[in-house]
């Protein structure tokens, strides 16, 4: 706490007393007050004719036991300061751990790598349906874009918002299928009785801090105007109707 111009004898008393007190800012304030007091006493004693050495000795003696003063001051401030410091440390550690976890998870999973957009989105008509949203196990699924090419293959992007930033990426490789207007079913390759001519594939594209993006392809839709992306397993149901074409909101 001592400043360059401070008297070393006086500041030594203050520093010794303040070793009991926690908190740099509080110690600084108390030091200034105690040192100021001793400085005034020293000045008065020297003005009364005492030598500096004598005045220093009497000033320190007049202050009394630094242990007593220090302990009493620490007793006044300890509870609040320790609580504040303790809570601040916990908040800091938890925040640091969360950040480290998020950085680690996304870094290792290549989440920061955003691949180049597929050419189909610039070549074909893309349509966004903001209300095309459903929930499954806390995950929110939204078809953000959909389009179909001349060969009857539909493409769509599926954004999956995680319930918490550190939740695992949703596994979309099982349980999903597509049904078209005529009741035809399009399944993923890992499902039973898979038909190459009418098939669905969903693959992960990249992850953001709160959501993951997947790209899906439905082969063999023909000129169907819409299809339903469905999930059905263990009593859990999900239906997302995806219209192809039309004049709804333009894509991003």
């Amino acid at each position: 706490m001592k400043r360059r111009e401070d008297d070393p004898t006086l500041s030594a008393w203050c520093d010794s007393a303040l070793t009991y007190v926690k908190g740099k800012r509080l110690r600084r304030e108390l030091y200034d007050e105690l040192y100021g007091h001793m400085e005034d006493r020293l000045s008065d004693l020297m003005a009364a004719g005492l030598s500096k050495k004598e005045a220093q000795t009497l000033t320190v003696r007049a202050m009394g036991d630094f242990n007593e003063t220090g302990r009493e001051l620490a007793g006044i401030y300890k509870p609040v300061w320790w609580r504040v410091q303790f809570v601040s440390k916990i908040v800091f550690i938890v925040t640091a751990l969360m950040l480290a976890y998020i950085l680690l998870v996304f870094g290792l999973s290549g989440g920061f790598r955003r691949p180049a957009e597929s050419e189909i989105w610039s070549a074909a008509q893309a349509v966004v349906y903001p209300d095309c949203e459903a929930k499954l196990d806390g995950y929110t699924l939204t078809v953000s874009r959909a389009t179909v090419d001349e060969g009857g293959t539909a493409y769509f992007t599926l954004d999956v918002k995680r319930p918490l930033p550190w939740s695992k990426r949703a596994d979309l490789s099982h349980g999903f299928f597509v049904e078209d207007i005529d009741g035809n079913v399009y399944k993923t390759p890992n499902a039973g009785d898979w038909d190459r001519e009418r098939s669905l594939s969903v693959s992960w594209l990249y992850s953001g801090p709160l959501a993951d993006r997947y790209e899906g392809t439905v082969v063999g839709l023909g000129d169907a105007g819409w299809f339903e992306l469905r999930y059905s397993s263990c009593g859990r149901e999900l239906r997302l109707k995806v219209e192809l074409g039309g004049d709804k909101n333009d894509g991003d």
């Binding site: 007393a17 108390l30 007050e33 105690l34 007091h37 006493r41 007049a62 202050m63 009394g64 036991d65 630094f66 007593e68 003063t69 009493e72 001051l73 007793g75 006044i76």
Partner: peptide, 8 residues
């Protein structure tokens, strides 16, 4: 009184 005790 001891002057240091005033501050607590």
């Amino acid at each position: 009184l001891k002057e240091g005790t005033l501050y607590p």
